[in-house]
Design a protein around this nucleic acid. Structure first.
Lengths: 200, 200
DNA sequence: TAGATTATTTAACAGTGTTAAGCAAATGTA
DNA sequence: TACATTTGCTTAACACTGTTAAATAATCTA
């Protein structure tokens, strides 16, 4: 009766294929081009079988969003691990965040974008665990020498960082910004500026 | 032959009605609910009529976006007129920008949002005139005592302001932020901080 | 009033997300 | 082996979407 395992493995495989196909379509043709039939074509099935793996289209997008958070969190953790000083950690992490945004433009859109259409309150449906918050907030806490991780101060400072970085990312997505080099420098200046301002 | 004027006036009226209906739908049901047939219902016509006034759905959204920029520009100009000091002008204008974002959430989404779906590069199709840029940049120039309005410096500082404010707006749209009062204070602090940092 | 224009609608096409019904192949049971 | 049952998958359909072309209704002109 070990065949149960085999078919379970195959099922898991096509589930992954669905997500892979969806991401592929989105990254090459944009979000507006993502359709169930197009995904089905890519995985060489017909549309209805997708509903055996996901409740609906939104569930697929939600899962992609979740994977986006997971991916970002992983990159942030790696960046953090390369330094011991909280200040350097923060600097590297926000640069990593910046790079992630441009390397995964479409994912960033659903993760942090103000979506006019479709998946509106995606983020609220996600488990807290996949959130980059904890990873960064930890360094902020250490830098400011605050024990209580639930402190309002950390929260506020996190938003200060985030709003600046996300704002810069948004500008560049709307392609109203300067050159990549200039913006990277603006970002670095802004981040180090905030770090200096919150260092006791 | 004065009837020409009358029918022209009527045509203009239904054009306005289409836009009004579209905005109404969007503000009550969200962007994903906006459809040509729903607009037609609202103005008591059938869908194809709309195509005599707008090339397609995107053209309607684009016009709404344009009106959004116009509205914001007007409010910024009013706020600016209430002060003579460039510093106070900037402070008031960015608070106005902030208020506009929340009073016109849906408009703000298409104006400055990173739209995953639909109208992607809307903003690039708009006339420069309706852009809030000039109004704000002027005050930045006066504050920094820079004559040349095309200066890179002004541009950079504008983005510094904008990224912070837009970032904070985004946080609140994703509803991950603090209370309204707290955020307004964070905004005020950030804006006055930047003003101080660029005052010669 | 007859003819020409204009205004408006109906019908249709290709596409969307989604569900229900049907079929075919694999499996379990006797 | 023969039958019954479950499973995997497809076809067909529904109610939508944006958009276009053809048909009709209303108006204006002569």
């Amino acid at each position: 009766m070990g065949s149960k395992d085999r078919i379970a493995r195959l099922k898991e495989e096509t589930r992954i294929n669905i997500l892979k196909a969806a991401l592929e379509i989105v990254q090459t043709e944009g979000w507006q081009a993502l359709s169930m039939r197009k995904i089905a074509d890519a995985i060489e099935y017909t549309a209805p079988i997708i509903y055996e793996y996901f409740a609906n289209k939104e569930a697929i997008i939600l899962e992609l969003t979740r994977q986006g958070y997971l991916k970002l969190s992983k990159q942030l953790t790696e960046a953090k691990a390369q330094h011991t000083s909280p200040a350097k950690q923060l600097e590297d992490m926000w640069l990593t965040y910046w790079s992630f945004a441009f390397a995964n433009k479409e994912l960033y859109q659903i993760m942090f974008g103000i979506n006019a259409n479709c998946s509106c309150e995606m983020v609220n449906k996600l488990p807290e665990a996949d959130c980059p918050w904890d990873i960064i907030a930890d360094s902020i806490g250490k830098l400011m020498k605050i024990e209580d991780m639930e402190s309002e101060v950390i929260c506020t400072k996190y938003y200060t960082f985030w709003s600046v970085v996300h704002g810069l990312v948004s500008i560049n997505f709307l392609d109203r910004g300067n050159s990549d080099e200039v913006n990277r420098q603006v970002l670095r200046d802004a981040v180090t500026g905030i770090i200096r301002s919150i260092t006791p």
